[in-house]
Design a protein around this nucleic acid. Sequence first.
DNA 1: ATTTGTCTACGAAATTCTTCGTAATCAAAA
DNA 2: TTTTGATTACGAAGAATTTCGTAGACAAAT
Lengths: 138, 138
Amino acid sequence: MNQGEIPQPTESELEILTVLWARGPSTVREVNDQLNEQRTDGKEVGYTTSLKLLQIMFEKGLVARNTDARTHVFSAAFAQADVQRNLLQRLADSAFQGSAMQMVMHVLGGHDASSEELQEVKDLIEKVEKLKNSGLKN
Amino acid sequence: MNQGEIPQPTESELEILTVLWARGPSTVREVNDQLNEQRTDGKEVGYTTSLKLLQIMFEKGLVARNTDARTHVFSAAFAQADVQRNLLQRLADSAFQGSAMQMVMHVLGGHDASSEELQEVKDLIEKVEKLKNSGLKN
DNA sequence: ATTTGTCTACGAAATTCTTCGTAATCAAAA
DNA sequence: TTTTGATTACGAAGAATTTCGTAGACAAAT
């Protein structure tokens, strides 16, 4: 039950999920090493800290765990795109009156987008519109 | 010092800021009433809860406070658009490899945008491109 | 077999965020 | 003046998050 629901990851949990999305199924050691490599600040992450977080995430259903071997292997339980969509919706709800589109306008308007990026966006819109006109979506 | 920095508002603080942006300078009573009106869940917010939050926000520099009268008047210390930009950047950093543009693509691609909204986005891009070509920005 | 190193489980400290109770103060009403 | 009601200050409880220390289990090395 609650299959479609994605538990809201915290900031730290999201950091770990990102590692798992990039690396694929990983051991605690691998996750922890990666976290320490990518840290810009000097702050070292303790091994048991990563372990504990992964355990909590497992309880929440954010990650899957393979315990066949003594050294467990963890993997993200949800696709990156799905979690991203969730986070975007949450931000839209709390800061943009629930309108994701308003967020888009905000980024495009007040930001430093390169011509190439803008072209990319335009191309994407074209594709989306073609889809809509073909009557398959919406 | 640190003039440009906007302290990261928490979820509750953002809710209060939204009230202040909508209402303009307000007393604790006014903020608290508004919070209780707009709550969908039955949860009542206690008066002192709102008060305490506003006091904390004042210490953080998120709101300004006028104490001329006995009943203090609070107002948002930053423009809504600036805080929104900050929040977007934070999400981009934590979940989209720091690329706000990637967020835009994500929303436009995987989502339910109406034809009108898409047209709006296209119009905005046109405007932005005109600005860029006129050599004033970027 | 013993030691050494790595792993998981677990509890708990430290921190941050949220909420509220109480006391003191002030002003308006009686 | 006394009472009543509203307000601010403050402390602290409760909850969620982050971090780590310690213990016990297991396996590899000696």
